[in-house]
């Protein structure tokens, strides 16, 4: 006996996929809970690692890390498969679907026909759930879309076997064994501890220190890069914060949702207080995004504008340091 798969709209592909696969197997956790347990917010700014000529900036951990950590902290045994041959990868997917098993897939977004044109980039770390096949079409629950979508087999095949950075190699995964009574409270506390450790790590380009580093670098962009390039750098940071499905403010709002739920689960007043602080910090990040976009549009110009924006980013770092010191003390 199987119950029909229920699609739920999510902000982020990875957390949405993990939550959907667990939900389909009877463990109903919200996307923010999966996010918080799986590692939560992060920040990294590494100017000497360039992606497409742009310094690497990210508001969360590496692709795939949330999947791994969330399952681990919940005590879920997960089966992961990769394939050398696309034929094998598609045949294996068909067998799971025929048996009524929903599975997670890693794909490129570029080759998925239902993606909006302007969001199709050669980026290999998109995640989605496959839960059915009708004729030559796969029925997918792509968490960042409002409703389930259909995708022709040839397109899905291409998307699963793209090459390059984070090449998915047909990656397919699903929870094999879920504990009857998972220790949610323990997982939540583990998750918060992990996030505190990472945000407060004494490495100059990671966590809170990374945000301060970005702020210092930003100030120098106009002189160092010239106006056009500086605006491009600014846009790329805002893009990582708002364009890549983060739920707004570079995952800070989703993390607030997690902290609110976590406050209920743990009964800790400090976690509830941190949720309120994180909500305010998210608003500050949004203000930064608005100003950053003005720089890109040329409405705001000159070193003065960059200095003002850098001040705001610095303020976000201060706020996040206070939040994670508070949480660290509590858990």
């Amino acid at each position: 006996m199987t119950t029909p798969f229920i699609h739920r709209h999510a902000a982020h592909c990875e957390t949405g996929t993990v939550a959907a696969l667990l939900r389909d197997r009877g463990l109903d956790l919200s996307e923010p809970m999966v996010f918080g347990i799986g590692g939560g917010v992060f920040f990294i700014y590494v100017p000497f690692v360039k992606m497409g000529g742009i310094p690497l900036a990210a508001y969360r951990g590496a692709p795939g890390s949330i999947i791994k950590s969330a399952y681990k902290r919940l005590g879920v045994k997960v089966r992961v498969m990769r394939f050398r041959s696309p034929d094998d990868g598609m045949a294996s997917l068909d067998r799971f679907l025929a048996a009524g098993t929903s599975v997670g897939l890693r794909t490129s977004g570029y080759w998925l026909p239902y993606f909006p044109q302007n969001l199709r980039f050669q980026f290999n770390a998109h995640h989605l759930v496959a839960f059915g096949k009708e004729g030559g079409d796969y029925i997918l629950s792509d968490p960042v879309f409002e409703h389930p979508v259909r995708c022709p087999a040839a397109d899905l095949r291409r998307a699963r076997f793209t090459k390059g950075l984070f090449a998915p190699k047909g990656l397919l995964f699903y929870p094999e064994e879920i504990p009857a009574n998972p220790d949610i409270k323990g997982a939540v506390i583990d998750g918060i501890r992990f996030t505190c450790r990472r945000m407060l790590v004494p490495v100059p380009f990671m966590g809170v220190a990374g945000i301060r580093y970005l702020s210092r670098q930003m100030r120098k962009w106009p002189d160092k890069l010239g106006m056009e390039r500086a605006a491009y750098y600014m846009g790329s940071v805002v893009r990582m914060q708002e364009e890549i499905g983060t739920g707004g403010a570079g995952f800070r709002f989703m993390y607030t949702a997690f902290l609110q739920e976590a406050a209920g689960v743990t009964g800790m007043a400090a976690v509830s207080e941190a949720a309120g602080m994180m909500s305010e910090t998210g608003d500050k990040w949004r203000e930064f995004a608005v100003m950053g976009a003005k720089v890109c549009k040329g409405v705001l110009e000159g070193p003065g504008a960059y200095a003002e924006i850098a001040d705001r980013v610095f303020d976000c770092a201060e706020r996040e340091e206070r939040i994670f010191r508070l949480l660290k003390g509590a858990v």
């Binding site: 969001l119 980039f121 605006a231 846009g235 805002v238 708002e242 364009e243 976009a293 890109c296 549009k297």
Partner: peptide, 9 residues
């Protein structure tokens, strides 16, 4: 905002 930064790329 997302429209502006998307157009930039």
């Amino acid at each position: 905002v997302e429209k502006i930064i998307n157009a930039q790329t």
